[in-house]
Design a protein around this nucleic acid. Structure first.
Length: 572
RNA sequence: CGGAGCGUAGCUCAGCCUGGUAGAGCACUUGCUUUGGGAGCAAGACGUCGCAGGUUCAAAUCCUGUCGCUCCGACCA
């Protein structure tokens, strides 16, 4: 490609709309342009990167035995009603109506579609296992699109769906995808780490997210430096806490004491009371599908709503209002407690188990209760893990202190089980002639998000550092004169032709611009290798071969092509 | 949906407080010079100041409404 023929509109200044570095570089390097919030046009260079990522994904999916299909973006609401997600996922739907005023959904994902296909086409255990994948534009009515391609209304996703006859076979399908993902991100030049993840509204047994560590990431990952444990904060657990209190305290009776004006954990922790937060029981009141539920945590711990969703079996909950709380406990927030409460369901975090000498609200303004023994004084219906793990907690595997960092989710693998196959009748006859539901898994990669994540992870002060595998062009030739008669220009043309002949994605910067402009643009766009041809070095028969972000070497002009080919293969 | 900020040339922004002929830098066009890290000089083109009302002799500027964008939060496979 000749630069003058390519369309590479680089920006010297950063558009005001971009906040994070990858978003700024997407715009400055001429990869995308915004149409409106959450909707982007991919410019030619962006399309080239996108296609290369897709090619890597296709190669690895095919290698793992998956088969490519292409499903409609437009979906009928009926299949969503059948799966039960018409309600639970409705917030993300873009809906459209046809001329007969029938409603359609722009697909946010495709479990319902693929399961419908499988229900029709696969009827015998002999036809399994199967894994179908597609690369498709998905539509989600995000509450707040942000950071360019990171969270958009419309984005390109690779999703794969596996169907197996047994749980063990499904496990093996899951592992194949997990391994394929590891290879895909590596080939894209990304350091992505698999972490244990919450399954959320997808449902299912367990899942892993592939995370790219980045300050701008929207997720928090809890990890152990030993490498033995990593999980999304929504899912993360830690080594169990030792119960608070002593055997002597177990014998003390509950005692009400005056705490005028005390309404927070911090108030009670201060003098004159001096009750350490970990000695307190925090009482939260939630409205769960219109019913009031109490949630208890240690005073120094905080609630993890993802875990609460799992414990309750529904995501339809919210903190109760002041009126609801008063109606339920005849007390206001600040003095709440669960001692003696038997008329409401109580969910308590495991860290409270067998604690003694605890203090909690008395359900009476200005009073608290001390010497509370959780096993004796609380009527707990459900002991569950409800706590948000934080840095410094101990690793459940090694016992080392855990750390936390932010990350971008680029891939997610789920073991779904039979939720969708049962709902949408993806049944088959097993060897004994018995009808069984297919065991499913689903596996997503955000293609457009991956593109941006690469930039987020690979850049310097001058611009992007594309890996050879997905760079829009792998080699940029920068002649410092465009006088057609000059030796510089003629050599540049010769090397350009040679590299093209070798199948290299090469771009020749044939603009009649000053060298500074060419260097800045090449660095900004981030071609992995640049060949500089100028009169000075050419006088000695040499050209410059420079790796983006790396060293520059002088090579004999006649060896330039082989030197570049060698460099490219060393990069892969 | 709550909070904050911003909408003026293709881009970055000034002007607004204190109403009075629409500005700068970069980019663009033409010419000359320049040519190893975003050149210089000269000439030129580019705007219904987001939109709609209102106040006023007069509105980019003041008031009201509205739309859009960005950030924070809630939310989110």
């Amino acid at each position: 490609m000749r630069w003058t023929h390519a369309f590479l509109p680089t920006l010297r200044e950063t558009p005001a709309e971009a906040e994070i570095i990858s978003h700024k570089l997407l715009l400055r390097a001429g990869i995308v342009r915004k149409l409106t919030g959450g909707l982007y046009t991919f410019l030619p260079a962006g399309v080239r990167v996108l296609r290369k990522i897709e090619t890597i994904v296709r190669e690895e999916m095919n290698r793992a035995g998956a088969l490519e299909v292409l499903m409609p973006a437009l979906q009928p609401p009926e299949i969503w009603q059948k799966s039960g997600r018409y309600e639970t996922a409705s917030d993300v739907f873009f809906r459209v109506k046809d001329r007969a005023r029938k409603e359609w959904i722009l697909g946010p994902t495709h479990e319902e579609v693929i399961t419908t296909l499988v229900a029709d086409e696969l009827n015998s255990y002999r036809q399994f296992p199967r894994n179908f994948y597609q690369i498709q534009t998905k539509f989600r009515d995000e509450i707040r699109p942000r950071f360019g391609l990171m969270r958009a209304k419309e984005f390109i996703m690779k999703d794969a769906y596996s169907f197996d006859c047994t749980d063990e076979a499904a496990q093996s399908s899951y592992q194949k995808m997990y391994d394929a993902y590891t290879r895909i991100f590596k080939r894209c030049g990304l350091k992505a780490v698999p972490v244990e993840a919450d399954t959320g509204v997808m449902g299912g047994k367990f899942s892993h997210e592939f995370m790219v560590p980045a300050e701008s990431g929207e997720n928090e990952v809890i990890y152990c430096e030993s490498g033995g444990y990593a999980a999304n904060v929504e899912k993360a657990t830690c080594k169990p806490f030792e119960p608070v209190g002593t055997d002597a305290e177990a014998a003390l009776e509950v005692e009400k004491f005056a705490t005028p004006g005390v309404t927070t954990i911090e108030d009670l922790a201060r003098e004159p009371y001096g009750v350490a937060a970990q000695r307190q029981v925090k009482t939260l009141v939630y409205s769960v599908e219109s019913k009031i539920v109490l949630i208890l945590l240690r005073g120094d711990h905080s609630l993890n709503e993802a875990k609460l969703t799992g414990a309750l079996g529904t995501a339809k909950f919210r903190p109760a209002t002041g009126e609801e709380i008063f109606e339920a406990l005849k007390a206001h927030p600040g003095s709440l407690g669960a001692v003696g409460v038997s008329h409401l369901p109580v969910y308590a975090d495991l860290a409270l188990r067998n604690c003694r000498g605890m203090t909690t609200g008395a359900n009476e303004e200005g009073y608290h209760l001390r010497h509370v023994v959780t096993a004796r004084d609380l009527i707990v219906g459900h002991w569950v893990d409800l706590r948000t793990v934080k840095a410094g907690d101990l690793c459940p595997v090694t016992g080392e202190p855990l750390k936390v960092r932010r990350a971008i989710e680029v891939g997610h693998v789920f073991k779904l089980g039979t939720k969708y196959s049962l709902a949408l009748d993806a049944l088959f006859l097993d060897e004994s002639g018995k009808q069984q539901p297919a065991v499913m898994g689903c596996y997503g990669i955000g293609i457009t998000r991956t593109l941006q994540a690469v930039i987020e992870q690979r850049h310097d002060a001058d611009g992007i550092l594309w890996p050879v595998s997905i760079a829009p062009y792998t080699v940029c030739i920068t002649p410092l004169s465009m006088d057609a008669a000059s030796a510089v220009c003629q050599l540049a043309e010769k090397i350009y032709a040679d590299l093209l002949g070798r199948g290299v994605d090469v771009i020749l910067d044939d603009r009649n611009d000053r060298p500074g402009v060419k260097f800045k643009d090449a660095d900004l766009i981030g071609f992995p290798v640049r060949i500089g041809i100028g009169e000075k070095s050419l006088a000695k028969g040499e050209v410059e071969v420079k790796q983006r972000g790396g060293a520059m070497t002088l090579v004999k002009a006649e060896n330039a092509v082989s030197a570049v080919l060698e460099l490219l293969s060393a990069c892969e």
